[in-house]
Computed example of a mutant assay.
Amino acid sequence: MTDPLGNLSPRQRDLLTSWLPDGVVVKDHSWGIVETTVLEITDGSGRYILKAGGATDHHIERELRAHHHWLTPWTDRGRAPRLVHGDVDGKLLVTTYLPGELVTVTSPGVFRQAGELLALLHGHPAVPDDYERRENAKCLKLLDGPHRITPAVVDRLRTLITGWPTAPEPTVPTHGDWQPRNWLVHDGVVAIIDFGRAALRPAYTDFSRLAAQDFRDDPALERAFIEGYGSDPRTNDGWHRGRMREAIGTACWAYAHGELDFEAQGHRMIAEALAEDL
């Protein structure tokens, strides 16, 4: 039988033993695509979720930052797991376990709740951040790396990106992967998981993945989400730049991980975003 802790480093094993000495792994929730190990553990007194990052992981640090500074509006309502243990250097954390199933069947009611929850996160005071300059540089670096974006499209993207503004932008805490695969439903109530991409960004960035998928497929979901959120932050040129960045990131990430369907979505997103510039 495969050791469920086999991907943990010696330090991570030591930390886990010190935190949950009687812990027993009951389920492996890891995706197998990225290097993060996700395990469900019990120790006789409770049920927990353990997340362990690999050698190059940066998601655990982000997740710990979110737990320490941003998630109280959700955890106070029982709508997100609470941090129990965490170690940035060890790239390891343990949270409470939330009951529920990942959203696989979408409905306006679920999307309305998700919009309400996102508004709570974005309700933190905005702070200026060097977001635009940093994200422009990140996109150019992705275009320098391996992908299957055609040379003509790459040239056009480079021209656009180098002309984008670089001034500081108002930012708020964002989830970074806001879509149904990170929403749990239990007894009709939506809760949120997975904060490995949480960071300060413009609020509209948390709409990007929904706009590329669920909103595109069913406008009723978009209407319900906006009703729950209370407004629509996609009102300026930043939204278009954000869509372009998301498209480039999707195509490049999916190519690197062999996710062909997701890569095709990325190329479609690029084409649609570019069409808006015509």
Rank of each mutant, 00 (worst) to 15 (best):
E135K: 03
H147M: 03
D155C: 09
P151C: 03
R158K: 11
T159P: 07
L157N: 13
A114H: 00
E135F: 08
D130K: 02
H122G: 03
L118K: 11
A152I: 02
H147N: 09
E116L: 04
H147D: 08
L140K: 00
L140Q: 00
T162M: 04
R158L: 06
P165G: 03
L160I: 15
Q113A: 00
G109D: 13
Q113N: 07
H147E: 06
P125I: 06
V154A: 12
R148Q: 15
H147T: 06
G123D: 08
A114N: 06
L160M: 12
R148N: 07
L118W: 13
D155G: 13
T162S: 09
D130C: 04
A152W: 05
L140F: 08
H147F: 04
P165I: 01
T162V: 11
P146K: 15
L120V: 12
L121F: 10
P165K: 00
L121T: 07
H147P: 05
T162I: 10
T150V: 14
L118H: 14
C139S: 11
H122F: 02
C139Q: 13
A137P: 01
L140T: 01
G163L: 08
L160R: 15
R148D: 14
K141W: 15
V110D: 03
D144N: 15
L121P: 01
T162H: 09
T162K: 06
G163F: 08
L118I: 10
I161H: 01
C139T: 00
P151L: 01
V154W: 01
D144L: 07
K141V: 10
R133K: 14
R133I: 07
V110F: 08
F111G: 02
D129I: 00
V127G: 01
D130Q: 10
R158G: 02
G123S: 03
P128L: 08
P125S: 13
R133Q: 14
V154C: 14
L117W: 06
A137Y: 00
L157S: 09
I149V: 08
P151E: 03
R156I: 14
L117V: 08
L117F: 12
K138Q: 13
T159M: 05
I161V: 09
G145M: 08
T150P: 09
E132L: 14
F111H: 11
K141D: 14
P165S: 05
L142G: 01
G145E: 13
A126G: 04
R133H: 12
L120C: 11
G109Y: 11
N136V: 06
K141C: 05
L142P: 00
